[in-house]
């Protein structure tokens, strides 16, 4: 290869990388605009509809008392919690799936959020707790199950397939405990436990939003800092080592961040179904195989806020269902459509 050819090859590679990055940024921008659109809609629509310009005026502090109440006290907390929870689940799923190199490795499939559900349902049905105590139980349940899976999967390090298999086994056991609790409870209690288990943004208040925002203010930067090792690990342990990444250490750090994200999200809104599972693969297919942490977070936000909008307004007869029912309904078919049409899988 002559120097000219080498220079050309480097140039081509650089251009390809720049093009990939440009596509990533374009996708992220498009997702962000979509989120803004949904945010605007969810602040404006409702039984008491408020035109967009009035929403903006209210946000700037110049609304009437009634607009202040509807926008700032009812709709904005709900939206804010949806955004935070969506980002947490999206990032958590993406980190899990990349680090373990397996699209099934999301917290809702390997038992982390099921662990949270078991703890919460125990708290609800057996201990009779409510409110913040249930959230605390969910948080603890997620952490305990995650640590359990990690320890059980450890054997001279943690490998993706072993982690996922053990996670699936733990999830089966957790589901069995849930099934036991739900069949032994009064059917009304079982139904209210189910509402918690699908995830809901009802009753979002500024206090808990503050807690969640505080947690994410630590976790999101941590995830972004670890983006380089994440990208390396996604290519394989050997490649990562070649790039100077300590595979096991980096993986432990990333999984810890991902578990914390999932636990925070679950504690705040319940295990909003399948957000973590669909966000990563959708983001990967939109971005085109590159690292998609930010895009996955945005997809997560989009799925949760969009699903909440649908759950509140678009079902007939004024039926309001918990957001977690709709997240699976809009995320999963879209993922299926991507899987059916895509020629080659990025994450798959």
């Amino acid at each position: 290869m002559t120097t000219g050819e080498a220079a050309l090859a480097i140039d081509v590679a650089r251009r390809a990388r720049t093009a990939g990055r440009r596509r990533t940024h374009r996708v992220e921008l498009a997702l962000f605009l979509l989120v803004l659109g949904i945010a605007a809609l969810s602040l404006s629509l409702g039984a008491y509809a408020i035109p967009l310009q009035d929403v903006v005026r209210t946000l700037l502090g110049e609304g009437t008392a009634r607009e202040d109440f509807v926008v700032l006290d009812l709709r904005l907390p709900r939206l804010a919690l949806g955004v935070l929870v969506g980002a947490a689940f999206g990032m958590s799923g993406e980190i899990f799936q990349s680090v373990l190199r397996n699209p099934l490795a999301s917290p809702d499939i390997i038992g982390v959020t099921v662990g949270a559900s078991v703890a919460a349902v125990l708290a609800l049905l057996v201990l009779g707790l409510t409110g913040i105590a249930v959230s605390a139980a969910a948080f603890g349940g997620a952490l305990i199950v995650a640590v359990l899976i990690y320890l059980l999967a450890w054997r001279d390090g943690v490998s993706g397939p072993r982690f996922v298999l053990i996670g699936v086994a733990v999830a089966f056991m957790a589901h069995a405990v849930l099934g036991y609790l739900l069949t032994r409870a009064d059917v009304r209690d079982a139904q209210s436990a189910m509402v918690w288990m699908v995830g809901s943004l009802n009753g979002a208040g500024w206090d808990e939003i503050g807690v969640v925002a505080g947690a994410l203010a630590v976790l999101v930067p941590a995830a972004l800092v670890l983006r380089a090792p994440l990208r390396a690990l996604a290519l394989g342990d050997d490649t990562a080592r070649g790039l100077g990444v300590r595979a096991q250490g980096a993986r432990l750090g990333l999984i810890a961040v991902a578990v914390a994200l999932a636990a925070v999200g679950t504690a705040a809104a319940g295990p909003v179904a399948f957000v973590a599972f669909v966000a990563g693969p959708i983001a990967h297919r939109l971005v085109g195989g590159a690292s998609a942490l930010v895009a996955a977070a945005l997809v997560g936000v989009l799925v949760v806020t969009g699903a909440d909008l649908l759950a509140l307004h678009l079902l007939p007869g004024g039926v309001q269902v918990p957001v977690g029912v709709v997240t699976g309904l809009i995320g999963a078919p879209y993922l299926l459509w991507l899987l059916a049409t895509a020629g080659r899988g990025g994450a798959g």
């Binding site: 009304r188 669909v278 693969p281 997240t327 993922l335 299926l336 899987l339 899988g345």
Partner: peptide, 28 residues
């Protein structure tokens, strides 16, 4: 791409489970 089928299966589970839940939450 063996993993694809598992991914599709998990997505089908997600969609079907959500529909099931809608019904269960509205019908005691």
């Amino acid at each position: 791409e063996p993993m694809r089928l598992a991914l599709i299966g998990a997505a089908v589970t997600a969609a079907a489970t959500s529909l099931t839940t809608v019904i269960l939450l509205t019908d005691l």
